[in-house]
Design a protein around this nucleic acid. Structure first.
Lengths: 389, 389
DNA sequence: GAATAGCTGTGTATCGTTACACAGCTATTC
DNA sequence: GAATAGCTGTGTAACGATACACAGCTATTC
């Protein structure tokens, strides 16, 4: 066990005295080793070793230097999400790669969804922030902007005062939608949460008078879901109609818009599209919601899911119901995770790892040549799940 | 883009002046809100808002307070490993959970395997360390001990001055070995790297004169592999014989010992056991090495792998060679990952998540009731892969 | 009605380091 | 041989906050 009594920290001045040099010589010996002679450096190291000096106090150093050597990462979710969600993990692997390249530590700021998150952000000792998708109205994003530190947001919200990295979710969703909705008569969307409340629901798209006009900016003026009714299936609720514009998550909003675009191009109306909203990105929950989509009087024959996770849950539900894919049901996912290819899942491929790296580079002020201008790459991967007979 | 000019930081004194209160009142308003009147707090908040004060400078605060609110995590591998390796991820999810519970940030110290890792550790602004398996001779571990901060090591090395959490790897390996080696005539082990050099190799166990005696402590006096010969199969090398005691990774050492124990109980000799060493925990590499184990004059009929990853690679190799499991080959893994059950893989189940949480609690000085005394749980999960006909 | 306790506000000293400017000394240059 | 540049060492003044001790004031207690 750690049977240490909290020993007092040895100070630089003590090392200086023991080594017979000035404090500044010790400081330079650590911070700019080239600045002192070999002999002085050796004496300092020896004295430090002898006294058990652990090196300059990081807090004091960062106070004086004005930088910490830490990159802060803020998730719009609970901290454990960083390691539990495969998409977040891949993104963070990219961030971590860049951190390692620059010798920066990676600090995960402990957001939990509670009111103290703001304080946690302002208390974070970091030089820059990378933010993983959060809601437009998340107070955390204001706190980050208020620090005045460089910050890059992935996915959303998009703000003028913060750098931004994301694929063109709307265009990609449109591409996926065209593919999966082709020949469909009863299309459906399996969506991420619409807002921070993260309430799961099953309903149709909002009638077309409720904001079909595409708002390309950050206006979130849409009509919020109302008139919710709990179904017997569990926590799912039927809402009056899902309006893409009402979602406060930019990624969700853009993808809903894109799916709506695709269905509109096929001559359909958004209000014909059933939309199931998951409270979380899990195959388990998706399976339950998909079962609802695939049965009853409005049983669907095409499902556009916002992640491979959700699509795989749908696959399981279909299998359980004896439905064949793509015979009875076409299906698309998102992300092209490792599981997508074996499952024959049509999906949107994007490298979250690259995007994480790009966010980190941008935030740290070391952009790679293409970072500033190049659009973030994505492509539609066609597989058997949308090959309607 | 982040078109901000690096604005000067507003100081607490300026807020105090603007609010018409003393600096201490401002300090209390942030650090101990209950210490000041509602009115004073409101005035401080208002002034802060007006001036754009982002809250107390974290560096200054940590210098004065003597703590940072950060838990440091050090991996024995490159930083990206935290998100790339599924075992590490699950461990870290447990760490993250505890961090969130205590409002602590989680800082991943950017080790990359290079010589500057030591400096990175001493420069880390953290209150405690959690260390994920590293080699006994990794200088990083000394640097951590030198900081004098509380630290908990997972897996190894085991030291008197650092807290330690791990399953009884030797006992678990023995249990797995007994299961997988039962009825085997040509047993093999698929191992993690033996030391920091991380050289992959294929060879037999060292002859029994080279240290069969079980050293239970941390003595690593064993004979180091020598006389390495590159094979035509790629980077793998044939060594004179793998001696468990020679491994500087405690986990690897203990598991090798356990497998040796098991085979000895079956009346066998360690030198009959082929040992393939992977340079990394990847199914891909395992597949190549397993192919070597499963062919040629010494083709094996039982493989004890140190992870499910490696076991799954072996399964693929077996499938490619037309070998049936468990008909032609029995196989065991380790960790009981999600992929193990579908694959019918016998494995050692342990909760790395729980262990991560336990490490974090211990390091932060908030142990749960059982943490101090209870052994870390593991159990053998018997599945079809060891059900020899 | 005096003594006590609790609440709120303040000034000072200090946390441990590094930026900066300067000084002395040794090579190098023309 | 003087001027210059480079190297090495030093002292001082912050960096921005909080622990602590104390003071004034209002309730509460017996």
């Amino acid at each position: 066990m750690s049977g240490r009594t909290a020993r007092r920290r040895v100070t630089m001045a003590e090392v200086a005295r023991a080594a017979g040099v000035s404090v500044m010589t010790v400081s330079y010996a650590y911070g700019q080793p080239g600045r002192v002679s070999d002999e002085a450096r050796a004496r300092v190291r020896e004295a430090a070793e002898r006294l058990g000096y652990p090196g300059p106090h990081p807090g004091a150093r960062s106070l004086r230097r004005g930088r910490t050597g830490n990159l802060g990462v803020v998730l719009g979710e609970h901290l454990t999400y960083a390691f539990d969600d495969p998409q977040a993990s891949r993104f963070l692997a990219g961030v971590a790669q860049v951190c390692a390249d620059h010798g920066m530590a990676l600090t995960l700021v402990p957001v939990t969804g509670g009111p103290s998150d703001v304080d946690r952000v302002t208390a974070a000792a970091v030089d820059a922030f990378v933010v993983w998708t959060t809601a437009d109205d998340d107070p955390v994003i204001d706190a980050i902007a208020a620090t005045g530190l460089p910050a890059t947001v992935h996915g959303g919200p998009r703000r003028d005062d913060l750098a931004f990295v994301a694929v063109d979710d709307r265009a990609a969703a449109r591409a996926a939608g065209i593919e999966v909705f082709a020949g469909a008569r009863h299309p459906a969307v399996l969506s991420f949460p619409l807002d921070r409340a993260r309430i799961s629901s099953v309903s149709f798209g909002a009638p077309s008078n409720a904001g079909v006009t595409a708002h390309s900016g950050t206006s979130n003026v849409g009509v919020a879901p109302s008139d919710t009714v709990t179904t017997e299936a569990g926590p799912a609720r039927a809402t009056a109609g899902i309006d893409p514009e009402a979602s406060t998550f930019r990624v969700t909003r853009q993808r809903l818009r894109g799916f709506r675009d695709a269905w509109a191009e096929a001559g359909g109306d958004w209000s014909q599209v059933r939309v199931a909203v998951c409270s979380t990105n899990s195959a388990r929950e998706a399976e339950a919601l998909a079962a609802e989509l695939l049965t009853g009087p409005h049983a669907c024959d095409a499902v556009a899911a916002m992640s491979d996770e959700l699509a795989l849950g749908t696959l399981r539900a279909a299998a359980r119901l004896g439905l064949s894919v793509p015979g009875d049901l076409t299906l698309s996912g998102w992300d092209d995770t490792d599981a997508a290819a074996p499952a024959g899942l049509t999906t949107i491929a994007q490298s979250l790892r690259d995007q994480g790296a790009r966010c980190a580079r941008t935030a740290l002020g070391h952009p790679a040549p293409g970072d500033r201008d190049t659009e973030v790459a994505w492509r539609l991967v066609r597989r058997v799940s949308t090959r309607r007979p």
